[in-house]
Structures are given as structure tokens and as C-alpha cells.
């Protein structure tokens, strides 16, 4: 069992968990993920590592309540336990001194892009951060990102905070203004990563994306997470989760991401019907 030592509500449906997992924390590196299961009936879901603390022996994950499992996860509070927590899985990000790099986080993607930006900065890169969200209240970790970047550009789709527009608008500006960008790392929803790759391809700027495919075991055993990269089938769990974004077949990714949509909808409606928000400590999900 793995204890949730800290919960932070980042936005109405966005939560952060800091989870006690000594063996995972000892080895975790930027770019890797964990697989967790809430309880005996639970499914195994992958979450990308948003931070790790070797001294506190914890892993931090950020998740958005979209499906049944993440909604249920949202009802857990500090002091509650997760049934299973395995990792660190997948290959860590490739970190070296590229000179100048851009790290783009869209929506929830800010969480996994943060440790990568930090590692790149520690490796001597000049890190330009770009983060965006649909609207102001969904923005989180601005200060944390700022600490990992030399400069940080922020945008909201609706203009409710900072600049109005998409991360790709800022990215184009950054690339035009700052020459010699050696690498772009982009993590966020599929359409965002796809749009970023479309843009960076124009400039011939190598772009790494992190794919959050559907997984079961997360150790290369089932092949559920397969994705076509450069015409070849790869397993996101063991060959990734990061790939050269210019080679990823995003169309296929998008189709495979909704394989279980009808089942997910059924599970969510059943869950919502059967349970009001009944967290264990009565905080109403705020803690």
C-alpha cells in the first residue's frame, strides 16, 4: 500500500498527489511514469511523474478527473492509500546540453514537462518555458516552471490570464525571435503536441513528445500502447514514452486513444450515479 502524504487541489478537476513510494523515488528520473491502481477492482493507469523527492521518498503526480478511475482518485485524501504503485517505468528523458531549448507544457502537460525542464537546466541549457491552458483557473505551477526556466511565456486560450492564444502562437514567436533553438520538448493533449510538431517541422526543430497511450502492464508485455513511429510499431511503455514527434503517427494515436470510449462513458455515468463525492475525510475534495 502506498500512502498519499500530500494532496493539493490545483483546479476544480485537477489534483496533485505526493505519494510515498521509496523504491520508485530512489530511481525516478524526468520523463518516466508510474502505473497505479486504487483498489482491488481498480484498473491499472499510467501517470507521468511530475516530481520526485529522494529524501522524502515520494513521487508527485498530477491528474485530471476525466474517467471513472481519475474521478475516484480525486476522492482520495491525504493519509489514504493506493493499492498499487509501480515504477519508475519507461525510459527517462534524454538530457544533455543542447544549448538553447524550449519546453512546452499544455494543460496537464505542464506537470510532466517541469522535471524535464529542470533536468535540462541543470545540464547547462538555456531553457525557455512555454505554458498554456484553456483558461486561467486551469493554469498551475507557473512559479515552479519559472524556477526551472530562464524565461517563461504563459498563455490562455481565452485570454483570461497573460496572453490570449495557443502555445503554438508563443512557440512561433520564440523560434522566430531566438535563433539556434537546439530542441523542443512538448507535452500536452494530443492535438496540441500534433500542432507543435507541425510548427517545429517547418523550422526543422527536433521535437520530443511524451505519449500517454492506454496501457495495462506498462512493462512491454501486452502491446496495448503500440504506436507507429517512423513507420515502425513501438511500445510507448518500454520504447517511450518519449518519441521524436516528427515521426509519430498522431492520427493513429488519436484513434487508439478512444478505443474504450463507450466503456469509459458507461463506467463514469455508473460511478457518478452510485456515489456522491464522498471522500474519506469529508473535505469535499478540497484537500
Amino acid at each position: 500500500m502506498y500512502r498519499i502524504v500530500r494532496k493539493e487541489a490545483l483546479a476544480p478537476t485537477l489534483s496533485l498527489f505526493e505519494i510515498e513510494a521509496p523504491l520508485v523515488a530512489r530511481k525516478a528520473r524526468a520523463g518516466q511514469f508510474v502505473i497505479l491502481r486504487i483498489n482491488e477492482e481498480g484498473e491499472r493507469i499510467p501517470l507521468t511523474i511530475a516530481d520526485f523527492d529522494r529524501a522524502r521518498e515520494t513521487i508527485t503526480c498530477v491528474f485530471q478527473e476525466v474517467g471513472k478511475t481519475t474521478k475516484e482518485l480525486g476522492t482520495l485524501c491525504e493519509g489514504d492509500y493506493l493499492q498499487d504503485f509501480a515504477g519508475p517505468l519507461g525510459l527517462p528523458s534524454h538530457i544533455e546540453n543542447f544549448g538553447r531549448v524550449v519546453c512546452v507544457g499544455g494543460g496537464l502537460g505542464v506537470a510532466p514537462v517541469f522535471p524535464i525542464a529542470r533536468a535540462l537546466k541543470e545540464a547547462g541549457n538555456e531553457v525557455i518555458g512555454i505554458m498554456g491552458a484553456r483558461t486561467k483557473e486551469l493554469l498551475f505551477w507557473e512559479e515552479k516552471m519559472y524556477s526551472a526556466c530562464s524565461e517563461l511565456w504563459v498563455t490562455t486560450d481565452d485570454g483570461s490570464y497573460s496572453r490570449k492564444g495557443f502555445v503554438t502562437d508563443l512557440l512561433r514567436e520564440v523560434i522566430e525571435k531566438k535563433k539556434d533553438v537546439g530542441l523542443c520538448v512538448a507535452i500536452g493533449p494530443l492535438p496540441m503536441m500534433r500542432a507543435v510538431c507541425g510548427l517545429t517541422r517547418e523550422y526543422g526543430l527536433k521535437t520530443v513528445v511524451s505519449l500517454n497511450s492506454i496501457m495495462v502492464d506498462g512493462t512491454g508485455m501486452c502491446g496495448c500502447c503500440r504506436v507507429t513511429v517512423g513507420g515502425k510499431t513501438k511500445f510507448a511503455c518500454v520504447d517511450g514514452p518519449e518519441f521524436d514527434g516528427h515521426l509519430v503517427d498522431f492520427e493513429e494515436m488519436a484513434r487508439r486513444a478512444v478505443i474504450y470510449k463507450p466503456q469509459e462513458q458507461l463506467a463514469v455515468s455508473r460511478y457518478v450515479k452510485n456515489s456522491a463525492h464522498n471522500c474519506s475525510c469529508g473535505c469535499g475534495g478540497g484537500r
Binding site: 477492482e41 481498480g42 495495462v216 508485455m221 501486452c222 487508439r256
Partner: peptide
Amino acid sequence: NACGVYSANEFLTRTNLMKAYRFPEADT
């Protein structure tokens, strides 16, 4: 890689280990 193509490992793991035959009582 089309939707609806499973490896036997995935098909059986979902069913046996994750008890997908009991969905939606089991989550997988």
C-alpha cells in the same frame, strides 16, 4: 495497429488478471 487488434497477452491479461469479464464491476 487498428482498433480491435489485440495481442493475446493483452486480451488475456485484461480478462484474467484484470477481470474485464466483470466490467463494469471491475474497472478494466
